[in-house]
């Protein structure tokens, strides 16, 4: 059976949705979206520690999309297809959940998978060491992150990254990522 993006979307809208965006991820959109979550009452009433974590991790997730999404398939049933991404912030019981969805080309799966599996396999102390190591010695790309993004998310949340690749067609893969913050 083919992957049904509408079904995926519906699932992710579970819980108390604070923000739901789909479309072109641009610098202006990022500014607007961040402004929206900052004004959300859920977060305003939150402890400083959690509020800042959610905000920080949300920025990383959004900018990951901005820098790394591949072209969405032409037949996709969404209005804006350039730099297409989906991002949802919801509060689900004791957790805040950030879900992102975007298309990547098939040949990128291995790189993304290896990266996340590596980060997920590390202990807290190892994550900190690797973070400092990449920060002090790592080569940074023009996009700036140098692989610190995923590491930073896991370090700040203390939770593993929950991801899945769905085959959309022979070329386009839908990359789904869930990040939990408590």
């Amino acid at each position: 059976m083919n992957f049904d993006i509408a079904e995926w979307y519906k699932d992710k809208l579970d819980g108390d949705v604070i923000l739901n965006f789909n479309g072109s991820i641009t610098p202006d959109i990022i500014t607007d979206v961040l402004d929206t979550i900052e004004k959300s009452l859920n977060l305003k009433n939150e402890k400083n520690r959690v509020r800042k974590k959610v905000y920080n991790v949300f920025v990383e997730c959004l900018q990951n999309l901005f820098h790394h999404v591949d072209k969405a398939p032409a037949e996709l049933d969404f209005k804006q297809k350039d730099n297409f991404g989906i991002i949802i912030l919801s509060q689900d019981g004791p957790y805040y959940r950030i879900s992102t969805g975007n298309f990547v080309n098939k040949n990128k799966i291995t790189v993304i998978k290896d990266r996340i599996d590596q980060v997920n396999s590390l202990t807290e102390a190892e994550i900190k060491m690797l973070y400092i190591d990449i920060l002090s010695n790592g080569e940074f790309s023009d996009k700036g992150g140098g692989g610190l993004g995923m590491l930073d998310i896991v370090r700040k949340t203390g939770n593993k990254l929950d991801y899945y690749f769905y085959k959309y067609n022979n070329k386009n893969i839908f990359f789904s990522l869930d990040v939990y913050i408590s």
Partner: peptide, 13 residues
């Protein structure tokens, strides 16, 4: 700083 992203972290360094 209130917040900074990972791409700023290298510049701060």
């Amino acid at each position: 700083l209130e917040y900074f992203n990972t791409s700023s972290s290298k510049c701060l360094l």
